[in-house]
Amino acid sequence: MGRLLRSAIVLLLLMTVITGVLYPLAVTGVAQVLFPSKANGSLIVKDGKPVGSALIGQSFTDPKYFWSRPSATTPQPNNGLNSSGSNLGPTNPALTDAVKQRIDALHAADPSNTAPVPVDLVTASGSGLDPEISLAAAAYQVPRVARVRGMSQAQVQALVDAATTGRQFGILGEPRVNVLKLNMALDGH
């Protein structure tokens, strides 16, 4: 028993050094050399300063911007310090109410658009930080953004296309539009 206990404690310490110190340091070393930008958060840098991450969405409510997926993080939406989903069950009336409010907000920003709203634009993302929206959710917003900015829909659509990523390797995941990159391109237009 005493000998087993000694082996248990010493092996735990040795394994902690190997898997808890050497292993993460080795991965960090290689990743920082091979993929420095990705390993450091895929930051978007402007004038030497980070102005956002290509992977972390921000919240938009101004009609001149494309809006992101709704975010259920607290106390503010898209809070990077507290990722979370709404965890509302499908039959919870609070979910239906939240969706109605989001539809109303979209309609208020663009009363002329009476098309059904793409579902991802009115449902909270899993992380509360989803950087992307579906192509349908982008297309739904193109007329509004074009009108508010005094641009043609074709000009806006071109910027949407530039921020679009297809299915990876043609099969994996879903085609999608990066909202932060798109809005930055709009402001820089």
């Binding site: 539809i103 991802d120 995941g173």
Partner: peptide, 28 residues
Amino acid sequence: ALHGLAVDQHASAMQAGGNMEGKETRFG
């Protein structure tokens, strides 16, 4: 629960559709 509302849950080339509450766009 969302069927009566002005929401499009159909899958198409433009969106995954379906129950997207709590899901990420890239995974659908």
